[in-house]
Structure formats: C-alpha cells, structure tokens
Deep mutational scan, measured.
Amino acid sequence: MATGGRRGAAAAPLLVAVAALLLGAAGHLYPGEVCPGMDIRNNLTRLHELENCSVIEGHLQILLMFKTRPEDFRDLSFPKLIMITDYLLLFRVYGLESLKDLFPNLTVIRGSRLFFNYALVIFEMVHLKELGLYNLMNITRGSVRIEKNNELCYLATIDWSRILDSVEDNYIVLNKDDNEECGDICPGTAKGKTNCPATVINGQFVERCWTHSHCQKVCPTICKSHGCTAEGLCCHSECLGNCSQPDDPTKCVACRNFYLDGRCVETCPPPYYHFQDWRCVNFSFCQDLHHKCKNSRRQGCHQYVIHNNKCIPECPSGYTMNSSNLLCTPCLGPCPKVCHLLEGEKTIDSVTSAQELRGCTVINGSLIINIRGGNNLAAELEANLGLIEEISGYLKIRRSYALVSLSFFRKLRLIRGETLEIGNYSFYALDNQNLRQLWDWSKHNLTITQGKLFFHYNPKLCLSEIHKMEEVSGTKGRQERNDIALKTNGDQASCENELLKFSYIRTSFDKI
C-alpha cells in the first residue's frame, strides 16, 4: 500500500482533458527560462521544448504516446526543470519506465491550478516501474492521483506527508504495488545497510526511497516546507523545498512566496507586481503582455491589467481597466465587458449561442446573426445582446428569417469595421425574408467608422429604411451602385405612401 494514499474509496472516473512563447529569463536562482504550460502528445517531438525550461508557468501534460519505446527515452533528460506552477499529468506514455532521468531536479509542483483537485496525476502508464522524482520536495496545493499503472512499484516507500501538507485526498490505487509483488529495495538494503531515512506512518517504520538508488530526502521537522541542505541544516524561511546553503534567500532552489532578481522575498516591493503567484514583474512586463494579447485571437491570451499590486489576466467583477495605466478602477454604474472572439468572429444561430455573449459591452471581433427560429426570440436576444455598444469588426445579418427588427441591439452605437466582410463591408444584410426595420432612427444613433453597407434580398425592408441608415451611420456616399439592390429590397412591402385627393359631386333626387 502506498504510504499516505487512500484505498478502496469510491472515486469519480478520471477524465483526461485534452506555445513556446518565453516569458522571460528567471535569473540567477533558476538555471534556465520560464516556459508556458505545455500539452505534449502523440510523439516526442515537442518534448524537446523543455530543454531550457527551469519553470513551467502553467501545467505540463505528457500523454497518448503509443509508439514510443524505452530506448526512445534513454537520452532524454531535462535537468534544468525545477518547478511547475500548476500540475504534472502523465497518461498512456508507452515505453517510459521512470522519471528519474527525465526530470531529475523537479523540486516543486505548486498546484496553482489543479487537474480535478490533483497536482500530480500518473494514470495508465503501462510501462512505468517507478516514479523516480527523487528531488520532489513540495506539492504546495492539491493532491496526488496514481492509478492503474500495472508495473509501478516504489510507492509504499514514499512518505507523501513530507511532500504535501495533507495526504487525506491522495488516491493511489490499482498499481502493481497493490499486489505486494514489488519487493522494493532501498539503497544499501541488499548489503544489509540502512542508507535512507525511515519514518513512521500508520504504525509502520519504513525506509523512504524513490528507487533502488535514490533515497527520499527527509528534512528535520523544524525546517517545515522550506527544505534543508545535504547536511540537514534548514533553508531560509522564504525558500521552498530545498537550498544549497542554509538561511540564505539567494540560495533557495525555489521560493515559498515570490522570486525577485535572484532572491526569494515575502512580497513584491514597489515598483514590482505579483505575477502568477510566484514571481515579481515590473510595469513594462505587464504592459507588454497586455499589448501582445490586445489584437491576438490565441486562446488563453489575456490583456493583463494591474489590481491590488498584482498583474492579473482581467479586472475583477465591479472594476474596469483604465487604459492609460492598466489599473483596475471601480465602475460607475454597470461595468464594461470586452469579449474577445477566439477566431475573430462568432455566429449567433440560437439563443444558446447568444447567451455566451451575455453582459458583453464591447465585441472584439465580428458578429454573424443567422437565426431561423426560436421561442420568445426578441426578448431572449435583447437579454443577451442588448448591452453590446461596440463591435470592432463587422455585423452580418444573414438568412435570419425569424427577425423582424434589429432593435434587440438596443445599445449598439459603434461598428468600427477594423475587419470587413469580403474585404469591403462593415454591415452586411443578406436574404432576411421578414426583416422590416433596422432601428427606430428617431431614437437610435449608430456610427460606422469604416467599410460599406450591403443589402440584398431583404424583400420587406424598404429602401427608405436603408437610406436612413446611410445618413445616420455616416456611410452615405461610400456605397457603390450594386451594394444596395434596388429590386430585391422592399419588393414585397408597401414602401411608397402617396396622399390621394378626392373630389365629389353631391346629387339628390331633384338636383344634379
């Protein structure tokens, strides 16, 4: 039985969820670079991206490699990797027998973001014989899940209580170790020597080791999670996991709180800001991140802002960003909400898709409305799209047979046209069989910064309504002859009103 693990408890099935942008060198404390989270699957090609990484700022997932063999891993080693800020997950990587050479110096898994409450997941690794993470000293947050690894031993010899604050939620089941077939031998045991430290858990006094050649490092209890030197002297209180010299914040392997210019500090002093819960960055760093993602459509890219001495992905609820200094300031009234469309555009074809934009005031991208039916549609669209004030790209209304009016965009005031449909149009209306009105132009103002209007096959939309939009939106004169079809717009509506004058002759039985 794995020490510190839980057996036999019912657990939810383990679901495996399925960018080499360097964020800056980590400095003297770390020998390499800070790398983003990685999802490495199918083959070993991307694994080489770990070569210079000291910190993975995010998670590391290595999974679904069915053609790899043990010899493929023999020359692979990433000794610079010290810390993973989120979680480490391995799933069905064939041929991998140990992690001792792959990650010989991995010391800390912070667990800032977890995989279903777990910071370390080893699942269905069919050839893994031992973990071998002999320098792993601290899992700051989260638990361990090690399950269905039929060859995995050296679990009962690990004292997880020396690595985690609590072992109650560890789930370590259905491994070879369960069948008591392992016969784990710690260093020196074969020669009758006791080389590794022994600890007591559940009444068992057991030597602690990761492999037959690597003991588990056990520091004096007084050192807590700070770690200790090879001689057993406690590291500085700002260290986490390990250090090369005692009581020196510049000799830590990793930091308990924050890293700044080669030393570990309790908090980031001005003019620095907390970033990702582990390091200090200056304003320029946060500003660069903001600008890199301002026009990016890459998933996970955030326009970072500053709030409460932190550089964070977005302002919290009730705050909006001051564009001059990136500071989050309290909103006066309802907060603006910028919604970034991942692929640059979004099609609204149902109430469900409209709900995804609920509360958005600025759309960074283009909207395509293609709704053919739905219950209580006008009210639903207004509830979900009615706060949109600005669209950076274009607005396209296409084959939306259920629409009679666009009044559900009740606050839309600006279409920038930074991206144009077919390279020309910022407003595009095609084949809307029941569209009769755009907006009530006596109450609604709309500016279209650039781009043209396109109207074709809107049989109940009168040309007068379209011409009014040209005047109000500032697009009059931009359109070419064929942009607004004269014969297919309003051709099934009563669009022309003329005053009919009647004269009559009164007659009676005795007068003409």
Rank of each mutant, 00 (worst) to 15 (best):
S317E: 10
D247I: 02
D178K: 08
V305R: 05
G188I: 14
D75A: 04
T194C: 02
K310I: 07
Y134W: 14
H302V: 07
M65C: 02
P79Q: 07
T320S: 05
T107P: 00
S323I: 06
E71F: 10
N175R: 07
D261G: 02
L63K: 03
L120I: 05
L63V: 15
P79C: 02
R298L: 11
C196E: 14
I222M: 04
Y259M: 11
C182Y: 04
E180P: 11
R256L: 07
L50P: 00
Y87L: 00
M125G: 04
S161W: 04
C53W: 00
Q245K: 10
L174N: 13
H290F: 14
D169E: 13
S143C: 06
T320P: 02
S54E: 08
R208F: 15
R141L: 06
I122Q: 01
N175T: 13
Y94A: 09
N295Q: 07
L260F: 07
D159N: 12
G37V: 13
M83T: 05
V55I: 13
G262S: 09
N322A: 11
K310P: 01
P269W: 01
K251R: 13
Y94N: 08
I185A: 04
R113C: 13
G37K: 03
A254L: 10
G262C: 02
V305P: 02
N257F: 06
C243M: 00
G132A: 11
I62K: 00
L63H: 08
P79Y: 02
L64Q: 11
T229E: 06
C252T: 02
T45I: 09
L174F: 05
G132Y: 01
V265I: 07
F73T: 07
N149S: 13
S317K: 04
H291Y: 14
E314A: 08
I146Y: 02
K292C: 09
M65G: 04
N149M: 01
R256M: 05
R110F: 04
N195Q: 09
C264W: 01
F66R: 02
F258G: 02
D86V: 00
G203N: 13
I56Y: 00
S112E: 15
T250K: 01
L233F: 08
D247F: 09
C280S: 00
L327W: 03
I84T: 00
P249R: 01
C153W: 02
N242T: 09
H48L: 11
Y94I: 08
I40M: 10
G183V: 07
E71H: 15
R110N: 03
N42Q: 09
S296T: 14
A198W: 10
R141A: 03
G227W: 06
P220N: 06
V265S: 04
F283M: 07
I40L: 11
T194A: 06
K191P: 08
R256S: 08
F116T: 06
W160P: 01
C243N: 00
G300C: 07
L136N: 00
T68N: 03
N149E: 00
R74L: 01
N52P: 13
Q276T: 10
N149G: 06
N117L: 07
K80L: 07
I158L: 12
T189G: 14
D159S: 11
D261N: 04
N138R: 14
G192I: 02
E124W: 03
E238W: 04
Y319W: 15
S166P: 10
T107C: 05
I185H: 05
I185F: 02
C153N: 02
D288L: 13
E314Q: 04
K176Y: 15
L76K: 15
Y30P: 10
P104Q: 01
T199H: 14
K148S: 15
R263N: 00
T199F: 10
E57L: 04
K193L: 10
L99H: 00
F258V: 05
E33I: 12
G262I: 02
L152Q: 08
Y134M: 13
F205L: 10
A198M: 11
V93L: 12
A190I: 07
F78L: 05
L76E: 01
E314T: 12
D247N: 07
E238Q: 15
N295D: 10
L164T: 11
H236K: 01
C153Q: 09
S244I: 14
Y118Q: 15
W210L: 07
C35E: 00
P70V: 15
P197V: 06
C234M: 03
A254I: 02
M65T: 04
T107L: 05
D277R: 07
Y259S: 03
L63F: 04
P336F: 03
I185T: 07
G142M: 01
C335A: 07
S213R: 09
L90C: 12
S98G: 02
E124A: 05
F283S: 04
R92V: 02
N42D: 10
E57I: 07
C286Y: 00
C53F: 00
N43I: 03
Q276P: 02
R162K: 15
M38A: 05
C335L: 03
G37Y: 09
V265A: 06
E49N: 15
G227Q: 14
C335F: 04
T189N: 10
H302R: 06
C311L: 01
F258I: 02
G262Y: 02
I62G: 01
I139N: 01
F205N: 15
E151S: 06
S244R: 11
V126L: 15
T189H: 15
Q303L: 08
H28D: 10
F73A: 12
V206Y: 03
R263G: 00
D178N: 15
M137C: 13
N43E: 04
K191C: 02
C293Q: 01
N43D: 06
G183C: 09
N135Q: 10
V55P: 00
L106C: 00
N42I: 04
E33T: 06
G203S: 09
S296M: 10
P336E: 07
C219L: 03
C301Q: 04
C234G: 01
P220Q: 06
I84P: 01
P270G: 02
L332T: 06
S317I: 09
S237G: 07
F115L: 10
S296D: 14
N175G: 10
A119F: 01
D39G: 02
P220C: 03
N105F: 03
A230H: 10
G232H: 07
C153F: 02
R113L: 05
K148R: 15
N170S: 09
T140G: 05
T194I: 14
M321E: 01
P36G: 15
H28R: 07
D277C: 02
K148Q: 10
L81N: 00
D86A: 02
S284I: 05
F91V: 11
K251S: 04
W278P: 02
H59I: 03
Y259L: 06
R74S: 07
E57D: 15
V200Y: 13
V144Y: 01
R145N: 10
N282T: 07
E130V: 05
C335G: 05
R113W: 04
K193I: 08
M125Y: 00
V265C: 02
C286T: 00
S112Y: 09
L96H: 01
N195Y: 08
Q204P: 11
T157M: 04
L326Y: 07
L99N: 02
P220H: 03
T267A: 14
E124K: 06
T250G: 04
